[in-house]
Amino acid sequence: MYYSLIFAGSLFLLKLVVSRTRLVSGINSCSGRVQVLYDGTWGTVCDDGWDLSEAAVVCREIGCGDAIEVKSSAYFGEGSGQIWMDNVNCSGNESALSKCEYHELELNDCNHSEDAGVICQSVMRLVEGFDDCSGRVEVLHNGKWGTVCDYKWDGSDGAVVCKEMGCGNIKVLTYGAYFGATSGQIWMGNVNCNGEEASLSTCAIQGWGTHNCFFAEHAGVICGLPVRLVNGNSFCSGRVEVLHDGQWGTVSDDGWNLTDAAVVCRELGCGDVITAKGGAYFGQGSGPVWMNSVDCVGKESSLIQCNIAHWQHNNLDHLHDAGVICSEQ
């Protein structure tokens, strides 16, 4: 964090420089509401003047591809707290949003219904897996897709991949040709993530195209979503269970409604919600009741992003386990 003095006519304006940018509440780490970090606090960006030039800077800063779409009017849900930036004006070539011109601190006339967002091109994909959350890891660089060398491939690296894909926690790391062999470019070698990065492309590597691998030494992952439906007639119906602290548990039906259930359906790729169920309609679960009084706004990418009082409620039983029936398409 630092400050810079900008001369404007006869006045010196104190311009804060934010130190970090992230996207939240999107479908993956390359989409969502724009947030910037200043003085240890995350805040939002007002959508006044927000266009593709600003979005392009955000996408590049967080290690995603080109800006695909600009979002405004709190498309990804309203943030809270401080609105750090307003009337952002980028040329599009800046390395960070903080290097663009903008009004900052409380110098804005915005509220959180005007929070800016962006959808960037994903620069990573999982190929030939069982589903969208498993497969051979491939990254896009210089307009060309290539693989990742599995030398020193570990859990921190896989965790970043799963998070970037919006697929929850890492379940299994794979090596070699587990998901099939492919020829062509090997882009990344000796990947060394700390696990906190938003994108694999921002992790430390030997250098693009530099590696110790040969043909078919491909890194892969199997990820797991933190939410599942159990005891239903299909994948898209059942008792809602969430994964927390390494253990599956249930959700109380206290306050459970169609808005909350809709988040589950969307998270699982199951279309629209048909019915929100309570009273252990799909049978009683076991283990902890992780979530109670769930309060979603409806645009969250995962149920675990919705508001709750706290994790685990030891005074609740499974007679009130929540469930859902989704449209499946």
Rank of each mutant, 00 (worst) to 15 (best):
Y3Q: 06
G9W: 11
K15W: 03
S25Y: 04
S25G: 00
C30N: 00
S31R: 01
G32L: 07
R33F: 09
R33V: 07
V34D: 03
V45A: 01
C46S: 10
D48P: 03
D51F: 06
S53F: 15
A55L: 03
V58N: 11
R60G: 05
G63I: 01
G63W: 06
D66G: 15
G77K: 01
G79F: 08
G79Y: 05
G79M: 01
G81E: 09
Q82T: 11
N89K: 13
C90Y: 02
C90R: 07
N93G: 08
K99T: 12
C100Y: 09
E104A: 10
L105M: 14
L107K: 09
D109N: 06
D109Y: 13
V118G: 14
I119R: 05
S122H: 07
V123W: 13
M124C: 11
V127R: 15
E128K: 14
D131F: 04
D132L: 14
C133V: 12
C133L: 04
R136C: 05
V137M: 05
N142I: 06
W145L: 00
D150Q: 09
D150I: 00
D150A: 02
D154L: 00
M165N: 03
G176S: 02
A181S: 15
M188G: 07
M188E: 07
V191F: 00
C193I: 15
N194Q: 05
G195C: 01
T210Y: 08
F215Y: 15
P226R: 03
R239Q: 08
V240K: 05
D245F: 05
D245M: 09
W248N: 10
S252L: 13
D254T: 02
D254S: 13
L258T: 13
D260C: 01
G269C: 09
V273I: 10
T275Y: 04
G279R: 15
G287R: 04
M291A: 04
N292K: 15
C296E: 11
V297Q: 12
K299A: 03
E300I: 13
S301I: 01
I308L: 07
N314Y: 15
L316R: 07
L316G: 08
H318G: 11
S327Y: 14
E328I: 00
